[in-house]
Amino acid sequence: MSICQVSNKFCVVGLKSYILVYSKSTGSCQKLEHNFKKIENVKEAEPALDYALFSPRFNYFAALFSDKTLSVWSTISNDAIWRLVGSVDVKRRSVSIAFSEDEASVFVADKSGDLYKFPITDGKLQHVELENMEPIVGHISMMLDVAITDDLIITADRDEKIRISDREHPFLIRNFCLGHTDFVYRILVVKSRNLLISVSGDATLKVWDIEAGMERQSFEITEVSNDQDGKKSFPALLSCSKDESLIAVACVETFLSSVKILSISNKDKPVSTAYTFDVEGSDQILSLAFDSDDPSVLFILTVQQSKELAVMIYTCTASACAKVTGIYALPTINSHVASVPLSDLTDKEYPQLFKCCVAGHKYDAFYNKKKLLQKIEDSAEAKVPKLDM
């Protein structure tokens, strides 16, 4: 996964095996390299950055790597140099991270459907013995994203479900948000409106009432179709502005380089489509993120038609957007980013998330039939009288 994350001081570009940290004011760069450990008999352990993000107050930055490692850096220092505050093993290859609001915990969602909690104490990521770790939330299928609020744990999985659990007692399920017809890839919380936004492999963005677990709106972002490489496109890139007035969403694995902007209001239908714009000179959008300082500024990491990486910046309102160049240290940042070889990008195979087809039908149909037969068998066994011995 190639990522672009933005804080009040830094613009971060994450690549296959390292992370580039740019100062927004000077353009100076710090390179964070990860030494991948070897995992015996694991086919998928090729070097890759699986996920990364800032903590809510931007005091920490966390990253997941394909060698089952979670690393956390402190972003606070007098010389603007990040320092590693902990690197720990996780049980299985993981796909998403979320911090608690107080930045005292990191939550890690893995491919087996489990969610684990790692504490941060006295500014350091604490080592936890894996044998003694128990998941705080578990799904039957692959977990794909997690969001944490003061009182909720919200998780999304490959089986089209969003689960809302109690934060203090995670075994208590408050609601399921059901309505997607394919995997739920990303979720985000709009706290000021008590809304949950989700995007899915079914090519929709849905708006949910968190308290009721009810779908309030649905938007078709693009048709799920194959491009010339045989990869499917769907809305996978999602970001919300700091003032929670705008949402930016874009598709991946496609030669379309457009971003859709939606506006958030207090109306009965809280989200509305504002407009769509094309990213100038872009061949593919890799990541996007709203600025943490200016809620109108959107950072977009792209592969340009010149086959160079670039960080593009647009100012967005509810009615229009415009490309800007003379903001922050963008020219300095892009002169460095352009020198990054495209081979350093991680090839994220999103199509593997789409369910297999059997004779033209989703595997779900086969699986549901199998469960029905098992239910019939269990019922028949239950009717057989047991003999007292």
Rank of each mutant, 00 (worst) to 15 (best):
D293L: 12
T346E: 07
A382S: 14
N132E: 14
S94R: 07
D182L: 11
I333F: 03
L256V: 09
K371T: 05
Q5N: 14
F299E: 02
Y275C: 14
L286F: 13
C4M: 08
S282W: 03
H34R: 11
S100C: 03
Q284S: 12
F366E: 13
G113R: 02
L301I: 12
S28R: 09
H361F: 12
V224I: 15
Y314M: 05
T254S: 14
G213W: 00
V12H: 02
A48V: 00
I97W: 14
A109N: 03
A52N: 13
L172W: 04
E215Q: 13
Q126G: 13
I164Q: 11
V207H: 04
N266R: 01
T276K: 15
A289I: 04
R158I: 14
A203F: 06
F107R: 03
K16E: 14
V384E: 02
A52D: 05
V95P: 06
I164S: 10
R158Y: 08
Y18D: 15
S198H: 12
S296M: 05
R93F: 00
R216M: 15
K375C: 07
K191F: 00
H169C: 07
I221R: 09
D344K: 01
K348N: 11
D268V: 11
K91N: 02
V106F: 09
Y350A: 08
N78Y: 05
P47R: 11
K24P: 04
V259N: 07
K31D: 04
P270F: 02
S245Q: 15
I247E: 05
K161H: 10
A48R: 13
R158D: 12
L115V: 15
S257C: 12
S77V: 02
S263R: 14
L32E: 08
Q374T: 08
N266T: 05
K231G: 03
R186W: 08
H361K: 14
F255M: 09
A248G: 05
R174W: 06
K191N: 04
P119T: 11
V106E: 01
L309K: 08
I19M: 04
S379R: 05
S66Y: 06
Y363A: 15
S141L: 01
N226V: 01
A45E: 13
L195R: 03
E131G: 08
I19N: 02
A365W: 01
F255Y: 09
M214G: 02
M133A: 06
I300Q: 04
D378K: 08
C321R: 00
M143Q: 06
Y328N: 03
D110H: 09
W82P: 11
Q5F: 02
D102Q: 01
T222W: 13
S379L: 01
A329K: 03
E381W: 00
M133R: 11
L387Q: 12
I164M: 13
D227V: 13
R92N: 14
I327M: 12
V249I: 15
K68M: 11
L64K: 04
D122T: 01
V21P: 04
S257T: 11
T325M: 10
K117C: 15
F99K: 12
I221G: 04
F219E: 15
S74W: 02
I140M: 00
D344H: 13
D344C: 12
I3S: 15
Q30A: 06
S241R: 06
K37W: 00
Q284H: 14
N132P: 07
S165E: 06
N78T: 12
E280F: 10
L32H: 06
V72I: 15
V190S: 02
